[in-house]
Amino acid sequence: MRYAMAIDVKKCVGCSDCVVACQVENNVHHGYCRDWVTETINGTYPQLETEIRSERCNHCDNAPCVRCCPTGASHIADGGIVLVTARKCIGCGACIQSCPYDARYSHPDGHVDKCTFCAHRVEAGQQPACVAVCPTSCMYFGDIDNPYSDISQIMKVRKWKVLAPEAGTRPQIFYLL
């Protein structure tokens, strides 16, 4: 079993519902976030192209943040979900330095925090909060080891990319182009 997310950049409108839904669901403090939305604009007026992406921890298969963690606080849980155990974390910041996506942050309490793929919801058979709320339904979440899951199906028929593949982390968030 391998959880992953696919996000359709053709449909995403950058509304940031995924960001606020995450904050509300996961009690993320004001001034912090586990996911965010970027926009890239290429070209010169009036020949323009944009790409809007909802980004978060990529739950990398080859996760440097887990490797460099001196205490095992950063670890890989079932389904490949990368998690941080607060009471094991010393706040050394090594994992923050190691993440090519800058997906982690130092929680006001001192430990490191980041996207959990909403493990508490997934465990209860629900979609992550950001996926469930997205008004354009442009996010797909599920088990990519299962060829019949929605995400496997959509990835079969669409072109996709991952972010910074050259970083060698084997990210598990796929952007459908």
Binding site: A77, G79, I81, V122, F141
Partner: peptide, 8 residues
């Protein structure tokens, strides 16, 4: 999601 219960 029809998942087997997780252990996290």
């Amino acid at each position: 999601l029809g998942l087997t219960p997780l252990k996290f």
